[in-house]
Computed example of a mutant assay.
Amino acid sequence: MNELLILHSDDNVGVLKNAVEKGVRQVVRDRSLVVSDSLSMGHKVAIREIRKGEMVLKYGVCIGLAKSEIPAGAHVHLHNLESRYTQIEDMETGQ
């Protein structure tokens, strides 16, 4: 069963619908990937390789830039993602 929620054709991450264990195989867009960490529901997983500096797209929206190369199946979070949320909050508050 595929545990990754992908809502937009441009997305390069999927969101876990349920917890998964390290090593679980997922099929995304006719390609197979292996989840590299045990993760709980709601975490993001790269559904293809994401290059350093590339936009990370979730639900068709850029949520940040990759701080490093992110292989398919890897957990995508603050350790390898430069979030745009802080920048957007700063723009909204005029900082």
Rank of each mutant, 00 (worst) to 15 (best):
M1P: 02
N2R: 12
E3C: 06
L4E: 11
L4M: 11
L5D: 09
I6E: 08
I6Q: 07
I6H: 04
S9E: 13
S9L: 14
D10L: 11
D10P: 01
V13N: 01
V13H: 01
V13Q: 04
G14W: 06
V15F: 05
K17Q: 13
A19L: 10
V20K: 04
V20H: 03
E21Y: 13
V24F: 13
R29N: 15
R29A: 13
S32N: 10
S32M: 13
L33G: 03
L33D: 09
V34K: 12
V34M: 14
V35S: 00
S36D: 14
D37S: 07
S38N: 07
S38T: 11
S40E: 11
H43F: 08
K44A: 00
V45P: 02
A46F: 02
A46R: 02
I47R: 00
I50N: 04
I50H: 07
I50S: 06
K52G: 11
K52Q: 09
G53L: 06
V56S: 02
L57Q: 00
V61G: 00
I63M: 03
I63A: 05
L65R: 07
K67T: 07
S68W: 06
E69Y: 03
E69M: 01
E69F: 06
P71R: 10
P71A: 06
A72F: 02
H77F: 08
H77Q: 09
H77P: 08
L78E: 09
S83R: 01
R84F: 10
Y85M: 13
Y85W: 14
Q87F: 04
I88E: 13
E89P: 03
M91C: 11
E92L: 15
Q95R: 15
Q95V: 15
